[in-house]
Amino acid sequence: MRKTNHELTQHEIESNDKVHFGFWVYLMTDLLMFAALFATFSVLRNNTFGGISMKDIFDGPFVLTETMLLLTSSFTSGLAMLYALGKNKKMTLIFLALTFLLGAGFLGMELNEFAKLFAEGNTPQRSAFLSSFFTLVGTHGLHITAGLLWLTVCMALVRSRGLTNNVISKLTRFSMFWHFLDIVWIFIFTIVYLMGHA
């Protein structure tokens, strides 16, 4: 039962609101999990067991670039939503693709950072600090990976089905997820990286 008309009925608006609220509740539970990881990291940040500390990991321009990539991808996913609501399929796809590229760039940089640390023997087993560091930042990275897969599915849906109300509702949820991940990253950037250097 796919609607082809573009006008949202009252019933659809209400059920969409419920779906979005349900998704918001999921995001809040996810936030709770991140908060637990932040608390763990803050407790263990000085337990380096003679190994490297956050000061050694911190690379200012590198992490600033990462942050800007993710922030810009959050912005472009918002613009994609605007074009989707305006029923502009081509521009929606362009901005979703841009979001994907920026997100992939962020993930690539993070994997590169992790690979470097591993190559130097700084694995999660090295110290309590590194365990909590990899768990917190890695969990965010896993969310980004899942988000990129989801985004791929969304783009395929927009291509094959067009911007139906159903697809727009799916895009809205993806966009909420992506903005949420950027908000979590603000705190990783501040608490893990900047405070590690300060």
């Binding site: 922030l71 918002g78 605007l82 609501l85 950037f189 501040t190 900047l194």
Partner: peptide
């Protein structure tokens, strides 16, 4: 999400960049 406007996104983006850079610097 339905009341979104371009102006809102651009304002948010610029403010976010300013706050990120301020903390960084």
């Amino acid at each position: 999400m339905h009341n979104a406007t371009l102006k809102s996104y651009i304002t948010g983006f610029i403010l976010s960049i300013i706050l990120t850079l301020a903390a960084y610097l």
